[in-house]
Design a binder for these strands. Structure first.
Lengths: 362, 362
DNA sequence: GTCAAGAATGACAATGTTGTCATTTAGATG
DNA sequence: CATCTAAATGACAACATTGTCATTCTTGAC
């Protein structure tokens, strides 16, 4: 182990001067600094973390707690994957800031969080990010000494948090369809127990109202995929049937996620409805495996997981400064336009939807 | 910060005795130990990591280097996800052993590895695991001081490694089909540049030969998905056409991965071939999103990523002991039997395949 | 009661770094 | 050249812990 003394000896300066160079303090002459630098390089010297830490130095460690790694084993599509992108974002920012990210997994045991937090504190982390696998409210054990930022979730204690703007995402998707000329819409959202379902529902309804659509022209159904274990798609196909049986057939349907959209395709095909010519469909999540392999490729909304991770890390790194902003930060979703959302050819004079109704009556 | 001195004062012993109690050394009287324990609890004393580290104590840290987190952003299906499971396995084992896993990402820049390694060494990790996103040979910078284990990859320097047994996986899949009565087989494998392509090809061919299949009854084609950016599925559909155009139509096709199997479905349907009644298909990777949503659900082979992670971590933790086993450890793949591989109803007397040929000649 | 042996305990040095404060040096001014 | 000022540098303590070795205590045998 090469220590600061060796460097000092080689550069013929005191250990303190080496310390100054290493820490980038300014009162060192250029010529001296250069000499020390050379010695450091030659010996391949690396400051000893332990010793540094003992002098109350920052550890350079950021802790990250997530269920992502475990979760990605079970769920078919995004559930686990989402948090992976959050980790990725946090990782990027931390690395740019010269911090090392320490990742630990809850292994799906929520009560593990406290013990992980203590482990992290034992390693003198400078802060902790907790990333949830889907947008929700959590109860995070308070830590007196360690700053915490929540990612993809929030709590009632006012812990700083970064969450996706589900409302905006659905609103943008709806407005895209409206701009394309669609005037008869339907949405089959996620299970009602999911927070995101409510937010997106509001985004959808608000957009429709803002565009002055008559009440009967935009419908909403809940059709879960995630929650029930067996017969997961029953609510979806039931909702879809209800939509297709209605008098005024919509020209576009938005789904709670890409998987639902994919599952709905055969049912639409069976009803003799062409996508996207007769019916535009829009998913949610931007699950590449689904979106790009579906025919036509699926227009969808992407949750900004990467950005959430970045912002969470940035928030954490800035938390030493007192100028705290808002506790909860919303990161906008983006539309990913592919081929499944299709502009209505003719102006919406209702002939269009009448046609469709006739065609699918067979 | 409450230090060992405070505990010693309260328990009325020397700091050395407190140190002994904390470290579980045995030559302490029970009564003394109890007194110290109480003092520790009362003061909520936690040994200072930095100071401990400085005395050459193990850091309790294991480093993990992977491109997984970044990679999962690009590739549609498993490419990134795979390494996530490796991480998960390593995480499990480390946690059970009381170690904390430190994860860093190469951000796809292969030359970052060296710098990450140094960062880790700066944090005094007890060892490093490098996980590749797909089975391949790598060049890993040698480290004099830190033990390294490679996961899902290997090098030419004899670094301990844990890799999946692609050969066995394909062999098992082939044997499953043979046991089901199939005697005309085809395989459309991965791109030839991928190591796994060769291993699996051998597994396939060896199984066929071991069962005494005549040479003309098992064909192999390379049909990449991953490598070419544009027109990624051209080689696949070309290979598939060649298979379907042949005189003796196979009764089962194995694909290089699940995505290829999924992509092949429409082409099979277009040729009027029923799956699985007329044609069994088998994928590779066990991509849940594809396998369980395909009709019929896809029989496939799963790469043991979780186990690879576990074994890699175990190998690393045992590396202090000199009794090293084999440098490269192969972990077997498992078959995941679903509905797309179907036993041939009649004994294989060639009437079967004759029938099929006729039917698809239209 | 004496002694030996071994167990229990403590005093002190050492670890690699940074903070404090003292000392030296360089540069500017008269 | 003398003097002053500020910058540059260094000596040394302090940080919390463990290793080494010396000392003290306990136990049991004689």
């Amino acid at each position: 182990m090469v220590s600061i003394v060796d460097v000092a000896r080689l550069a013929d300066v005191s250990i303190k001067t080496v310390s100054r160079v290493v820490n980038g303090e300014k009162s060192v002459r250029d010529v001296t600094r250069e000499r020390v630098r050379r010695a450091i390089d030659e010996l391949n010297y690396q400051p000893h973390r332990g010793a540094r830490l003992m002098r109350g130095r920052n550890s350079g460690l950021i802790g990250m707690i997530t269920g992502a790694i475990t979760a990605s084993g079970h769920s078919p599509n995004e559930s686990g994957l989402s948090a992976i992108h959050i980790v990725r974002g946090a990782q990027q920012v931390c690395r740019a800031a010269g911090k090392t990210l320490m990742i630990a997994d809850t292994m799906d045991a929520q009560n593990e969080v406290g013990s992980l937090l203590r482990t992290f504190e034992g390693h003198s982390v400078e802060g902790v990010i907790y990333a949830a696998d889907y947008h929700r409210q959590v109860v995070f054990p308070l830590s007196r000494s360690t700053p915490v930022v929540l990612a993809n979730c929030f709590d009632s204690a006012g812990t700083p948090a970064v969450v996706p703007d589900d409302y905006l995402g659905q609103r943008l998707a709806t407005e895209l369809l409206l701009e394309q000329g669609h005037r008869q819409l339907a949405m089959i959202g996620l299970h009602d127990e999911v927070l995101a379902a409510h937010l997106r529902r509001s985004g959808y309804l608000d957009a429709c109202r803002a565009w002055g659509l008559p009440y009967e022209s935009f419908r909403y159904h809940a059709g879960s995929v995630e929650q029930h274990e067996s017969d997961a798609f029953a609510p979806l196909s039931e909702a879809l049937r209800s939509v297709l049986d209605s008098d005024e057939l919509p020209t576009a349907i938005m789904f709670g996620n890409d998987l639902m959209a994919m599952r709905a395709r055969p049912q639409l095909a069976a009803a003799g409805i062409d996508v996207p010519e007769q019916m535009s469909i829009v998913g949610f999540d931007n699950d590449i495996g689904i979106c790009e392999n579906l025919q036509p490729s699926l227009t969808t909304v992407t949750l900004p997981y990467l950005e959430i991770g970045c912002h969470a890390a940035e928030k954490l790194l800035q938390m030493s400064q007192p100028e705290q902003g808002v506790a909860i930060e919303r990161v906008p979703c983006r539309i990913v336009a592919r081929d499944s959302a299709f502009p209505i050819p003719r102006p919406p004079d209702n002939v269009n939807s009448r046609d469709l109704t006739t065609m699918t009556a067979t």
